[in-house]
Amino acid sequence: MNVRELRQSCLRQVRTTFCPGCGYEIFINCFLRAIEGLGRRMDDYCFTAGIGCSAWVPNNYFKADNFHTAHGRAVPAAIGLKLANPDLEVITIGGDGDLASIGGNHLIHAIRKRVPIAVFCLNNYLYGMTGGQAGPTTPLSSRTSTTLDGNSEEPFDLVKLVLGVGGRYASRYPTAYPHLLKKGIESMLDADGFRFMEVVSQCPRQYGIRNESSTASRMIAWQKENYISKEKARSLSSSELHGRLVFGNFRTAGEYVQFLTEQQ
């Protein structure tokens, strides 16, 4: 079955309203391929979402029960659903602003409470829907509509954050590697307990345009230069690793931090 047919059967509509080159399309396709690979159906899962472009992924398009809550509140709603009916397979899809800024407290407490839900954070580095304002993951010195002179605040490393508060499953995949992303989603949906994935995604319309990488292609190329899988990273020297972020699946803070130390 090709992706278009998959989209026809699993989405409420094939045509989305995302901007040309949006990484969320890659996430959607990889997600559909992943549930196909697992032999599951879209409506085996139910979804909660917050507010922002990320919330449109499940709420407008996924053909399954879904709850489009208020900004940042997707995780507590997911906890309510899961607790009230443990048979539901609850998935939360949020953005970086949604899950790490306004909903940051809910995220870390869900980890502490060990709620068995899967949380996807579609990280596009800023608030895309509202016009491209700086967010909790905006890289240092990046330009956004509220940091025209360059962002002066440190971004969150979401994988480090999740593992740091005791998470036992945190992964990161850039959209530049769709096959790996798809595999990552598959193993995440197959795992138990609280699971977190940061999907590093390009936003050419809001982020790229202000940061000299205005096309999706250039942003993908940038991702390929700057993100490296943990398998490859192991064979690199620390000078080769310098400035690059590692992606893959991490189970402990120690496993992840080792790559960070090597970077310095």
């Binding site: 909660t48 709850f67 809550t69 208020a70 509140r73 995780v75 507590p76 709603a77 997911a78 906890i79 309510g80 659903l81 899961k82 607790l83 009230a84 009916n85 539901l88 407290n105 809910h106 407490h109 409470k113």
Partner: peptide, 24 residues
């Protein structure tokens, strides 16, 4: 039944809404 002590009142109310949609 299900009881949960939330991290704040915002979470309490959204957990309640989630549970209500799960049928409780």
């Amino acid at each position: 039944g299900k009881f949960i002590q939330a991290e704040d009142e915002i979470a309490s109310v959204f957990m309640m809404l989630g549970a209500s949609w799960a049928g409780l």
